[in-house]
Every structure is written in C-alpha cells, then in structure tokens.
Amino acid sequence: MDVVDARVQRILRAAASAPSVFNTQPWQAQVAGRTLTLRADPARQLHHSDPHGREMLISCGAFLFNARTAARRESLTPVVRVLPDPADELLVATMRLEPGPIPNTDELELSVAIARRTTSRVPFDDQPLFTDVLMAIRDAARDEGADLRPIQPSEPARAEVLGLVRRAESLAAEDPAARGEELAWTATDADRADGVPAVLLGPEPENDGAPVRRFLSSPGSAQFEQHSTMALLATAGDSPRDWVTAGQALERVLLIATTYFVHASFATTVLENPTTRHDLRRVLSLDAAPQMLMRLGYSAMLPHTPRLPAEEQAGVDGAPPVSPGVRSG
C-alpha cells in the first residue's frame, strides 16, 4: 500500500467514527484513486421511523464531515460535491483529495476530537453550558450552514419541548413496528459491530423532567439533571441536501463540544413523528426545519459504541463494498 492509500484508509476509519441513529452506520464508501464516493446504505435505514431517509442522510453527513476533517490532518484538501445526481438517488457526495497545506492548530484539534467524541446517555452535571462554550458550538453550526437553537433550563418553552418528547416516545412505544425497530438495534449482543449495546443505553430516568431519551431496554434507573442545556439543530430547508448539511453541522458541533469536554445525547423520536416535529417547530417559533434535538453537558467519558471494520463499508478502485454481516430494518 502506498502513502496515498494509507492516508485514505486512515480517513475512512476516522469517517466511520461518526454518530448515526441507533448506531446503524448507514453509509458505504467507494474509493477510486484520490476520489471517495459516499452513498447511503438503504439496508441500514430505519424504514419505519425514518421512511424518507432524513436521519440516514444526517448520519451520512456526519461521516462526510469526519472524512473532510481527517483529510486535512493528512495535509490533503477535500474538494466536496454534495448531491444531487438524478441517476443515483443514494449518492450523498463525492470527495476528491488534492494536495494541501499542513493542517493548522484548529484543524488538528478538530481531527483529534474525532477519536474522543462519544455519546453519553448517563446523567450530566446539573448545570447549563458555559457561555463561551455555547457560543463556540453555535458558531460551529453556522460554519456548516445550519443553526443551533439553545433551550435553556429557565426558558418556558422547555417544558413544552420535554412534553413533546415524552408524547412522541409514548406513541412509539404503542407502535409494534417502532418497538421492533428499536429492539433490533439496541441492547445488542456483545459481538455485534453495530447497534447500541445495553450497557451504553444509559439508565431509565426517574424524574419526568429529565432531558434524555427513554429506551425500551434501558438498564436500571437514575435521577437525571434538570439544568443541562438542550439544543435544536435546524436548517433553512428540508430537502435531502439540507439533511446532509445538518449531518455535517451536527458533527462539527459535536467535535467542537468535545474540545471543551462536553458530551451530547439525542432525542430523535420527537422528530420522527410528523405531528410532534411540527409542534416542536411551533413551540420554539422556528422559521427553519428542525433536524436534531440534543442535550449537552459535562459527564464522564464513556466507551464508544462498536463500529464495523472500515473495509466492510468501503470498496476500492470501483469494487463494491463488502456486505456487512449484520443487517436489519
């Protein structure tokens, strides 16, 4: 393997560290020379809760941002073209790697954060984010063409937001297809390289006002914080291109947050239900499309969710990716 190939392999491994809904890892990459082609993998789409592929493309956007960031660590300049291609509806983006300058300090710091970023579903310290941290992550979202709307503990709308989260989760819990889809991807076996193991689901909240998702298989219970910062990521539009934009913005936000030792967890069910998604937009007086709701705060660093080997999701020089051993949905 020559130097360029080794760089590409490192870029792919970093890209595959991206977060994805239920850790489905719904992406495939093909490498031909210095060009990486990223496609969504419909076999890993949550077809019931994500029928239009919005969350799938957000996940792919996070993969793309990691690939861009990792390329700069390798002193390569990523030249990215994002959607559309009417002849290839699963195409997310192409990224051509050109020789570039050595990375600056900010680029290196961001690339190092890829390996440190992890989702935390445990109780956070009972305090909102520091003002400078919140400003930094809002700037990160704007840098990628999105907006991050904080929902602070003192804000009256917060109680309505939490009510919508609980309503969406209750409706999903009554839906056999939604329950089956969640159970297929959570509390997974120890030898699986995708999904969320039971130990990483986090405990069931004992308090109703906790800004955290409730899973069907949560192990144990605990008192959660009441005063951490919640935030909604939104985009101007709501097309597949906007979903990829949301994914890139989300990952930049998460990596910047990681540099401040801030973790995140996500409430996706409220955005999977069209009614509660609409109501969330109304409650927060948004003139943009809501794409991801999260809580942000300070906690101990937890283990990472498992990842499929990069070579299982990448083809080289036109060869198709190897089909992963575990599929669902």
Rank of each mutant, 00 (worst) to 15 (best):
Asp279Phe: 06
Thr245Cys: 03
Pro153Arg: 01
Leu216Val: 07
Arg116Phe: 07
Arg142Tyr: 03
Asp88Val: 03
Leu286Met: 10
His48Asn: 02
Arg7His: 06
Gly297Gln: 12
Ala234Gly: 15
Arg116His: 15
Arg73Ile: 02
Gln45Arg: 15
Met230Glu: 00
Ile58Gln: 03
Asn273Gly: 06
Val270Met: 09
Ala267Cys: 14
Leu308Lys: 11
Gly145His: 02
Ala15Pro: 08
Ala136Glu: 09
Ser120Ala: 15
Ala115Leu: 10
Ser221Ala: 15
Arg282Met: 12
Arg116Gly: 06
Thr105Trp: 04
Ala319Pro: 12
Gln127Phe: 01
Leu162Met: 05
Asp139Trp: 14
Leu284Met: 11
Ala319Phe: 14
Val4Phe: 10
Ala177Gly: 07
Gly247Phe: 08
Leu83Gly: 08
Glu206Thr: 14
Arg73Trp: 06
Ala310Arg: 07
Ala70Asn: 04
Leu129Tyr: 07
Pro153Leu: 09
Ser111Cys: 13
Ala173Glu: 02
Val199Pro: 00
His227Thr: 13
Arg166Tyr: 02
Arg295Leu: 13
Pro103Tyr: 03
Glu55Thr: 04
Gly209Met: 11
Ala168Val: 12
Val165Ile: 13
Asp106Ile: 00
Gly100Tyr: 01
Ala136Pro: 00
Gly220Pro: 08
Leu83Ala: 11
Tyr260Gln: 13
Ser154Ile: 08
Val79Ala: 12
Pro19Phe: 01
Ala177His: 10
Gln313Trp: 04
Val262Leu: 11
Ala190Thr: 02
Gly209Trp: 09
Leu254Gly: 09
Ala222Val: 01
Glu182Ala: 09
Asp106Asn: 06
Ala67Trp: 03
Ala62His: 05
Glu312Ser: 12
Arg138Met: 10
Gly318Val: 02
Ala177Glu: 08
Ser49Trp: 00
Ala93Lys: 05
Glu225His: 14
His227Ile: 12
Arg241Asp: 04
Ala173Gln: 15
Thr186Tyr: 10
Thr276Val: 06
Gly61Gln: 02
Ala157Glu: 10
Glu160Gly: 08
Asp147Lys: 01
Ile114Leu: 12
Pro321Tyr: 02
Leu97Thr: 04
Ala87Ser: 11
Ser75Met: 02
Pro150Asp: 00
Val199Cys: 12
Asp143Asn: 14
Thr229Ile: 09
Ala141Tyr: 06
Leu148Asn: 08
Glu169Gly: 13
Ser328Tyr: 11
Ala157Ser: 15
Thr245Leu: 01
Met1Thr: 13
Leu36Glu: 00
His304Lys: 13
Pro219Met: 01
Ala289Met: 12
Ala257Thr: 10
Glu55Ser: 06
Leu293Lys: 06
Glu251Phe: 06
Val112Tyr: 13
Val322Asp: 09
Val322Leu: 11
Ser285Thr: 15
Glu144Ala: 07
Asp191His: 13
Phe22Leu: 12
Ala177Ile: 04
Asp139Leu: 15
Ser49Leu: 15
Asn104Cys: 13
Ala264Lys: 11
Asn66His: 11
Leu302Lys: 14
Thr131Cys: 10
Leu108His: 11
Leu129Lys: 14
Leu162Phe: 11
Glu204Ser: 05
